[in-house]
Amino acid sequence: MSELKKIPADIAELSFEAALKELEQIVERLDSGQVDLDQSIEIYTRGSLLKQHCEDKLRSAQEKIDKIVNQNGTLGTEPANVE
């Protein structure tokens, strides 16, 4: 299993929506076949970091949801289905 890379500051500052939009643009560029090999590697690497950032944001949101679920007037947790 590969080790998680440190997210660069410019990606870490992005909202989930902004990171997802940029990731979608990268996928479109790679799918177009109009990107040379070196640039493909560069944008694929950025895409993998954006994906990791989005997954971290979703995981954080799921943890927050788990903490605030209210069951019968008492605080409890219930797994959030974010997939």
Rank of each mutant, 00 (worst) to 15 (best):
A18K: 11
A18P: 03
K67W: 01
S2N: 05
I26V: 10
A9N: 02
I68P: 00
E42C: 06
I65N: 08
L23V: 01
E63C: 04
E13N: 04
E3K: 07
M1V: 04
G73Y: 00
V35K: 03
D56C: 05
E78H: 12
E28K: 12
K5A: 07
L4F: 08
L49A: 08
N81P: 09
A9W: 00
Q39F: 14
C54R: 10
D10G: 01
T74Y: 03
K21D: 13
G73R: 01
K5E: 02
N72G: 02
E22M: 11
E42M: 08
R29M: 15
L23D: 11
D66W: 05
N81K: 11
L75E: 10
D31R: 10
K21E: 15
K64P: 00
Q71E: 05
D38W: 09
P8E: 03
L20C: 05
E17A: 07
G33N: 12
E13F: 04
I41V: 14
N81E: 15
F16N: 01
R46K: 09
G73A: 00
T45Q: 13
T74D: 06
G76Y: 04
L4M: 04
S15W: 02
Q34V: 06
K67G: 02
L20P: 04
L30F: 08
E28M: 12
Q34Y: 07
Q62F: 05
G33F: 11
T45Y: 11
K64V: 08
R29F: 13
K57N: 07
S40G: 15
D66T: 10
Q52E: 03
G47M: 02
P8M: 00
Q34N: 10
V82A: 15
S2Y: 03
G76P: 02
A61S: 09
D38K: 09
K57V: 09
K21V: 14
F16K: 09
R59F: 03
D36S: 11
E78P: 02
Q25C: 15
K51V: 03
G73D: 07
N72P: 05
L75S: 08
E63Q: 12
C54Q: 07
S48C: 07
H53Q: 05
L49V: 08
V69I: 13
A80Y: 12
N72S: 12
C54V: 06
R46P: 01
E24L: 15
E13T: 06
I65H: 06
D66S: 10
S60D: 14
P79V: 09
A61Y: 08
D56W: 04
A12W: 02
H53F: 06
K51G: 05
S32G: 13
A61W: 12
S40M: 14
P8F: 01
L23W: 05
G47Q: 04
Q52H: 06
K57F: 03
E28W: 11
V27T: 12
L14C: 03
Q25H: 11
Q52F: 05
E24I: 13
A80K: 00
C54K: 11
L58E: 13
A9H: 00
E24A: 14
D38C: 04
K5H: 01
A9S: 09
I43A: 03
S60H: 11
S48K: 09
I43W: 06
